[in-house]
Amino acid sequence: MTKLQQETSRCAGCGVTLQMETPSKPGYVPEAALQKEPVICQRCFRIKNYNEAASVAIDQDDFLRLLGGIAATDSLVVHIVDLFDFEGSIIPGLQRFVGNNPVLLVVNKIDLLPRGINTNRLRNWVQKQAKAQGIKLLDIILCSAKRGTGFEYVIESLAKHRGDRDVYVVGATNVGKSTLINRLIRDYSDLERELTTSRYPGTTLDAVHIPLDDGHDIIDTPGIVYQHRMTEIVPRNVLQAVLPEKEIKPVVYQLNEQQTLFIGALARFDFVEGDRQSFTFYVAGGLNLHRTKLERADELFAEHKGVLLAPPSAEQLEEMPAWTRHRLTVKRGSEVDVFISGLGWIHVNSQVGALIDVHVPKGIRVMLRDALI
């Protein structure tokens, strides 16, 4: 197959345009696979041969066009969000794209929270946050797709609510969507009845229709890329330090005003004004926390970024957006989190109030929210 043919050819499995440059993008096919007939992308190959879906991502505009097509169907929508990055991974305005189709919210990675958390309180917190986004929910499922915790409730809820409908699975990148899809394939799908020469029906962009044993499909949509998440802008070799793999160990600091705490070289937390109080940091264990005086913060960063203050390295920082400041006012008697999308959050239980500055790469979402824990 010539390069021109490859560029204009489509996958026989999902219909996406084939490409050979980027394995993490839709339509990737290794050069050796171009000699086979029919030609299918690597993602479809893994579904067909291993009952396993691979994670791919598309930009926001393409994703919203794909999402908008769901409103014209009669489907159940499964929206997977990352509890560690809830506000960063939930799809804003989801309801207007999916129309009247019901939404099942699957909240993944609950295994990262400290043990003993009240699940009813957690569910209520999720319900409130989803309502603020205008999402009408059939149900909320708390689970860990990686560990299998709570997955039986996902299956039960699908069986209860799906009826005679297809299932669209939507979510941002790095929320565990492929892990959950793979569990659904093993539990639901009958791939033996599918012809390898046929295209999955009704595909748009790189949405993959995975046949179920009752004639309907699980439609695996690509992960949406949100540039307001720290996980989307850090170098790939830094991701393992940013994304926690096991239960987060909260770290408590008693700070006086005019003190600063660096989270590696990815963020800076300034306690600008207020009485001495505690701040609890919920971030991945692979990130170094370093305290200093606010008056020395700029100098310290300039001299030690990428070494004492790491990750990332000084060279990698040059490739990332410059820092920008977010000023937050915590009201007296409030219990809130300072949320940094993709990086974690800082719990503030302030009886006296506090003035806080957060410095992060430009574009990263920073906000105050009701306390999760």
Rank of each mutant, 00 (worst) to 15 (best):
T8K: 09
Q133W: 07
G306W: 08
Q60R: 14
L309I: 02
D370S: 15
V98A: 05
A297V: 05
S198E: 15
Q316T: 07
L239Y: 03
H79Q: 15
L317R: 09
L66C: 04
I248S: 11
M20C: 11
P361E: 04
A207T: 11
L76Q: 03
G99C: 02
I70W: 03
C143D: 01
T22Y: 13
F269E: 06
D74F: 02
I117M: 05
V348I: 12
D111C: 02
Q258G: 02
N120C: 05
A32R: 13
L308P: 05
I90L: 10
M367T: 14
E315G: 11
L294K: 12
Q227H: 10
G215A: 07
R325S: 10
K136T: 08
P38E: 02
K48V: 08
V251A: 13
P235Q: 09
G342R: 07
K246C: 04
T22W: 13
L180W: 05
D85V: 01
T17I: 10
M230L: 07
I340V: 14
Y282N: 06
F45G: 10
Y253W: 12
R236I: 13
L76S: 04
T149Q: 13
G202Y: 14
V167R: 09
S9G: 04
K3A: 14
G344A: 01
L372P: 00
L113R: 00
S75F: 12
V336L: 13
R65A: 05
V251H: 14
I224Q: 06
N237F: 14
P23H: 07
I263E: 08
L158A: 05
K293N: 13
I373Q: 11
E247Y: 08
E245N: 15
I135V: 12
Q95L: 01
L76G: 00
L142Q: 06
I91Y: 02
K177D: 12
S157T: 04
K177L: 06
D74S: 09
F339N: 13
L64H: 12
Q316W: 02
C44S: 03
C143N: 03
R369T: 09
N288A: 11
Y188N: 12
T329C: 10
S75T: 10
V77S: 06
V283Y: 07
G333S: 15
F339T: 04
L158E: 08
P26G: 07
Q5C: 08
A130G: 03
D337E: 06
P30A: 00
I90F: 13
L372K: 10
D61M: 04
G264S: 06
R147I: 08
K136I: 06
S55T: 13
I70H: 05
G69W: 04
D74G: 01
H290R: 12
R123S: 12
I40G: 03
P361K: 10
F45D: 08
I219K: 00
L317G: 07
I141T: 14
T149F: 11
M20S: 15
D357K: 03
R115A: 13
V167S: 00
L212F: 03
V225Y: 10
Y200E: 15
H228T: 14
D61C: 02
G264D: 03
M20V: 15
V336W: 12
G176N: 05
I117G: 02
I340L: 13
A32K: 15
W323C: 00
L34C: 01
G27P: 04
A314L: 08
E31L: 10
T204H: 05
R121G: 09
V77F: 13
